[in-house]
Design a protein around this nucleic acid. Sequence first.
RNA 1: GGAGAAUUAGCUCAGCUGGUUCAGAGCAUCUGCCUUACAAGCAGAGGGUCACUGGUUCGAAUCCAGUAUUCUCCACCA
Length: 873
Amino acid sequence: MSIAKTYNPKEAEDKWYSYWMENGFFRSTPDEREPYTIVMPPPNVTGVLHMGHMLNNTIQDVLIRRARMQGKNACWVPGTDHASIATEAKVVNMLKEQGIDKKSLTREDFLKYAWEWKEKYGGIILKQLEKLGASCDWERTKFTMDPDLSEAVIDTFIRFYKEGYIYRGVRMVNWDPLGKTALSDEEVIRKEVNQKLYYIRYKIKDSDEYIIIATTRPETIMADAAVCINPNDERFTHLKGKTVIVPLVNREIPIIQDEYVDMEFGTGCLKVTPAHDLNDYELGQKHNLEIIDLLNDDGTLNENAQILVGEDRFIARKKIAKLLEEVDQIEKIEDYKSQVGFSERTDAAIEPKLSMQWWCKMEELSKPALQYVEDGTIKLIPEKFFASYKHWMENVKDWCISRQLWWGQRIPAWYNEKNEWVVAKTEEDARKEFEALGKTVSTIRQEDDVLDTWFSSGLWPMSVFDGVRNPENEDFKYYYPTNDLVTAPEILFFWIARMIIMGHDYTQLPPFKNVYLTGIVRDKLGRKMSKSLGNSPDPIELMEQYGTDGVRVGMLLSSPAGNDLMFDVSYCEQGRNFANKIWNAFRLVKGWETTDAPATEAQKTAAVWFENRFNQAVAEIDEHFANYRLSDALMATYKLIWDDFCAWYLELIKPAYQMPIEAEALETVKALFQKVLALAHPFMPFLTEELYHDEIFGERTAKDCIIVTEYPKVIPFDEQITKEFATVQQIISEVRNVRNSKGMSPKTALPLAINASDIDFKKHQESIIKLANISELTFVQEKVTGALSFLAGKSECYVQLAAENIDVEAEKERITKEIEYLKGFLISVDKKLSNERFVQNAKPEIIDNERNKKADAETKITILQESLSNLGL
RNA sequence: GGAGAAUUAGCUCAGCUGGUUCAGAGCAUCUGCCUUACAAGCAGAGGGUCACUGGUUCGAAUCCAGUAUUCUCCACCA
């Protein structure tokens, strides 16, 4: 036999992936079948895929493959996301490394580089997904900046604008001085940072007195508009109505009063800098203060600062502190920890900044989106995420949707020479708009504003089917709403909430029914896998090493929904071993010669049992899938194959060495083998397809592939068969144990007697028991003396050994121990039963159960005690 | 500061509405085996006061309260 001893994944993977593609098995077009749709969360084109993507897409592939096999019209739409700021930051960096400054480029030139980047990395990503075995409909591959998707984005902007959800206004925004763009609240990551708290003396005008103010940001003092105290603060009553002098620039500012100020914190005095702090801004509005913006877009000081103009804000901070020290206006400096916002993408410290931006009103829009999840129209899996979803939805603020970038969909606003503006899809429309408003326009222009990436990905489930531009098209009507969305909990607000909001606004429907939230892939130490830590294995390398199927199994084995996954390569090893196990089971069957004979009694019994066990497992697996417990579904499959199929069924029907197998038994095992493979296919697509096509299973037509073969259906099974067989398994196990404990070789045949007075297994199972290398099997009506005994169910079994092999003392001890345990057990049962309150309160079936336990234990004790006394003979 | 979750074997996790699936699984460990599909394997074995303290109950890993530890999300205190 020339078949390899271990499974070699490489060959099978390349072969079958292209075969599936060539035969269009991933393709989906609307037909009369029930659709099953998943849209892939589009990975960013910022780089290559990491383990989190791999897990995510493996889950999606398992779901889609299973649905496909179940006869549904399975459609998995792949794609990538342009990831506006993230990609632009990467491209800018890449250019910088080549010595090119973004500023030196025109918009068009820059976009050319960006598109090149997208082609390169988008391509790598799609290749990685192929390697993973992802069975998506590649002909539907979309990119969030494809012309049709971009048009959908622009249409939506205009729609929302007309509906009154989008407006333009000057607000405090999160400004990223590195990306030089505004950010939404969600794109700001707060981190605790060690800072200094500077206590600065402000001189009170016409007085020798100073007032001391604590701040972490001395570089902003030149923009101070007031000093604020709490009106209830008695320490400062005498200062009411006075003014103070801002140090260094000697500007006079008022002392105002507001209860906002916390008397306990710092010195109880607050400097108010409306241009550079959200709270100060609000205070400034309230008290009508001057707004002095002293920062440029890139975080350097502008001429409003008067001093240190052009200096970076962090350098300026130190220098200001020094200057203040020189004029003796620093009281003290303390170490201080506080939360500072950082840009999610560029990691620059965020600057609160007043800026004209586009905003999306969220309050109205978010209501139906909350409703869907609240009433179960959309199910979050696991449910625990509902609480934070609800909280976010109920407290959502307006969404800043404009970004000062080039890479993205341009905001369709047009400006005339007077800076008046209209919203319109094209320049032509814009001119008409202006005309209609009676405004002159000679030159018309757009600004460098693009839309937040999440504005476009929010449309994803609709736009991939062209449902925004053309809601009546066949694809959209057929595939939408989609079924399952598989993604990370981190983007619950970024993405999921916005898809629901936008989907509802367009269609009055939820965009999907179930949201499966996967965990974060962490390393063994519990750290999130990241490039910077270098603790993330390269997924491609892993697949090379363990096989794609092995890696898929490895990832799924340890990832219950919503829980983080402590990833370790040992899981992949387990996956590889499992693939190998199936491979070798196949080798065994393939190696059998046949003889034209009917199956033996034992083979028939084993087959009946396994088929029943199989059906039982299918039901369990189905249940697990219904609850999105994929790791449990996989484990059930794993155990069915490894324990039941290989360790029991195949061992039981196996002919003696180099003997042929009965043809009938072989046919049965082949049929069952194929069913088992079908069950495993969603998890291990390549191995199962490879084996499915082996000649031992007969000729296959070109389209007869496991990927589209029928997935095992849930059919009734007989629990009694499983139970009876369990007794047989126990007997075989015990006999092995006897050999093991006596140091005998498995080849030693032993005689076995079973006390059939209380037989709870069928006689036809005799044939199975004999397979445990039993020299003589007898059924007796009474005790057998001078033998090792054990209980299987309620039947006592005896293995007759030569006297020297029986250690009477050890046997006595063993049996005594068992009796003691049973007696203790009996006492606890008796205690319950003699407790009046128990008998009164417990449900009747519970009481019955206790009575049965009691009877059982008593019987066993009797049997064991007899054995004990027999030992003495 | 607020909210949520978790804590069960060495590791990763199951244990639904309290009572034989109640103390489980996989991996790892240990002991035998290179037995003729597979040492990436086979046959066995050991291993847990169910974080802690109370409460409810005839009965608690399971329900309640508190404590401790850990994690996640949200939040503008200078």
